[in-house]
């Protein structure tokens, strides 16, 4: 809720701030409730946009978000040196976005290598811990695994392509409240 209206603040002459363009911003750490307003507002906005996109474009929404993610992946990977080994590339990738998206290369107990070959496909399990997409979807009560999650699909595929030169696909195995399991399928 707004603390006061703009005309009220002007009248009160309470603003102690002199606006010189070289001095803005006046606070390095904004108060948490202001940050929360902005953050939650953005999450709500994103959620509404993706929902409307899905309602209008149907499965085309997936294509839009995938493309957006891929652009992001390509951009991020431009500053990387070329790495041949997919595992190493993933490790460097997870370092960059850590916190926004915390990606862990994972293997189940009965396997001894991260790269798994099963039923004719070669893949690596990725566990997404922190995830802005999950936070956004859970804020709005929207189901996980939809078009917004596909931005990450695009991101990882685009980045891996740029760094290693290999083509890949991402498949969502399970979405959960604290972590999601995905498969990076290498071709």
């Amino acid at each position: 809720m707004a603390e006061g209206t703009v005309p009220q603040a002007k009248e009160a002459g309470s603003a102690p701030t002199v606006y010189r363009s070289e001095d803005v911003p006046l606070q390095c750490i904004p108060p948490p409730d202001e940050l929360e307003d902005t953050l939650h507002g953005l999450m709500k906005l994103n959620g509404l946009i993706i929902r409307s996109l899905e309602e209008i474009a149907g499965r085309g929404a997936n294509a839009v978000t995938y493309r957006a993610g891929r652009k992001y992946g390509h951009e991020v990977a431009k500053y990387f040196r070329k790495i041949e080994d997919v595992e190493e590339a993933l490790k460097e990738l997870s370092y960059i976005l850590h916190g926004q998206y915390t990606i862990e290369i994972w293997k189940p107990a009965d396997k001894d290598r991260y790269i798994i070959e099963e039923n004719g496909s070669t893949f690596i399990y990725l566990v997404f811990h922190d995830c802005i997409v999950r936070q956004t979807l859970r804020r709005n009560g929207q189901p996980q695994g939809g078009p917004l999650c596909l931005t990450l699909f695009g991101y990882v595929v685009g980045a891996i392509e740029e760094i290693t030169g290999r083509k890949a696909k991402l498949e969502i195995v399970h979405t959960g409240p604290n972590a999601c399991l995905k498969k990076l399928i290498l071709q």
Binding site: L137, R138, R139, N140, G141, P177
Partner: peptide
């Protein structure tokens, strides 16, 4: 706690 959880759902 969770905005995506509610008594009904």
């Amino acid at each position: 706690r969770e905005p995506c959880r509610d008594i009904y759902n």
